[in-house]
Amino acid sequence: MLSGIFVVQGYRNFRDPGRLAVAAQPVTEKVAPLLKKAHPSFPTETETLIRVNAAVQVSAGLMLATGRLSRPAALVLAGTLVPVTVAGHPFWKNDDPTARNNNQIHAMKNLGILGGLLLAAADTGGKPGLRWRTGHRIGHSRRSVQRAVRTARREARIAVRSASTARRLPG
């Protein structure tokens, strides 16, 4: 259910990025130099970036919906939600109280969706998480080493007793 909005809106935004270009341009102008620095051949035109974001949202949304790589997909969707919220719902810039209220509601809705995506990214589907498994494996290894040390000490004591008993026996 969480992925539905990304699939639908991503599809709409991919088909018609022009309707979002004016609102997105201040954000894309700030992101473009970073993209150029990271990868010089990456396109930085506003409509192209809207389409890239939309395609990522559709594909990650479908991955989340189908349960394929859902944890990474949720993280990717969370990452795409930040610039969308900043560009699409800048309530702090609105002078009109109605527009401010409307954008503030949408920004808070996106914040709630972001929280859901972070929970989905952390969800292990009932399986122990990597942190627990690592700690459990370390504890298991530590106990194995302690057992091996106790066994080696015991065997050394037995060997010492056997050697001292063998010396006492007439030969």
Rank of each mutant, 00 (worst) to 15 (best):
T134Y: 14
H89V: 00
V86D: 02
R71S: 05
V149G: 06
V58S: 02
L111Q: 08
A38W: 07
R15T: 13
A32C: 06
H106D: 06
N13Q: 12
I138K: 11
T80Q: 15
H140E: 13
R142Q: 10
G18A: 15
V56K: 08
T85L: 07
G116E: 01
M1P: 06
H39A: 12
N94V: 03
G115K: 07
K109Y: 08
R167M: 11
K30F: 07
M1W: 10
V149S: 10
F42M: 10
E29F: 06
N110W: 04
L2E: 05
V76C: 01
G10F: 03
A23G: 02
Q104L: 11
G126C: 03
F6G: 03
L69N: 11
R143E: 09
P17S: 04
A122Y: 06
L69G: 12
A152I: 01
F42K: 09
R150H: 11
T124W: 14
I105W: 15
H136A: 13
R142H: 12
N101P: 03
L35K: 04
H39I: 10
L111K: 11
R137K: 14
V52K: 10
M63I: 03
A32L: 03
A166L: 15
M108T: 10
A152D: 08
M108A: 11
G79E: 02
S41D: 15
L77M: 05
T80S: 13
Q146C: 09
V31S: 06
S144V: 05
A54P: 00
F6M: 07
R71G: 00
M1K: 14
A120P: 00
L34D: 02
A107S: 07
R51S: 06
A166Q: 11
A99G: 04
G139D: 07
R150A: 14
E29C: 05
R133Y: 00
H106C: 01
N13T: 05
V22E: 14
L2C: 02
P90A: 05
R168Y: 08
